[in-house]
Amino acid sequence: MILLEDVNKTYSQGAPALNGISLKIEKGEFVFIVGNSGSGKSTLIKLLLKELEPTKGRICVNNRDLGKMKRREVPRFRREIGIVFQDFRLLKDRNVYDNIAFAQKVIEKPNRSIKKRVPQVLTQVGLSEKYKSFPKELSGGEQQRVALARALVNGPSILLADEPTGNLDPKNSWEIMKLLEEVNKRGTTVVVVTHNREIVDAMQKRVITMNKGVIVSDEEKGGHYYADKYVSL
């Protein structure tokens, strides 16, 4: 579960990036966060990962108050959250298998369980054939699937996806979205920050629209048209 209470975030200069955000996302939900550039979406993701500290307000993730969390507790907390970026962020000098295994090595899983778990998650994202390929040999869609597999390999309870289809063509975007939906059906809370109008409209999930650091609409089973009322994208 994700809970934000009156959260403000102001960078050293300029207007606040987030201004009095209150938000509750229940366990197992699928949520889109939409809004144009500078609306505060990325800041929100960074706050949820405790990459940034809020200037004011309270953030709870998985029943843990991030403000009270000690620095040394952050790594363990992040292991409960999977993250997917627009630019994939794969390690270029390692093949598909090693990129995914890396996420398990980082949390010091024994080799035995890594060898068992990585093929499972590769099958889940449909890449079991390409486990030896290097990122540069893969298409954008495939790279994003590797990134998704890496996010899922540690079995996170929450998956944050920051513009996961931003660099993909429509076909690959749909494939990624279907995978995210599947992950959600297995019980993982999924939060997707996106610009993709077509997908948001079609999937009919909860849509939170942000503009200039505030939430301007929050609709169950919404479409992108809610965003259109407030924001020109």
Binding site: P75, R76, R78, I83, R89, V106, E108, A151
Partner: peptide, 16 residues
């Protein structure tokens, strides 16, 4: 640097 950033975001301890 990029690798360290990714490691930290997926929950690597400083020590690791």
């Amino acid at each position: 640097k990029e690798e360290i950033g990714i490691m930290k975001l997926i929950g690597a301890t400083d020590y690791f």
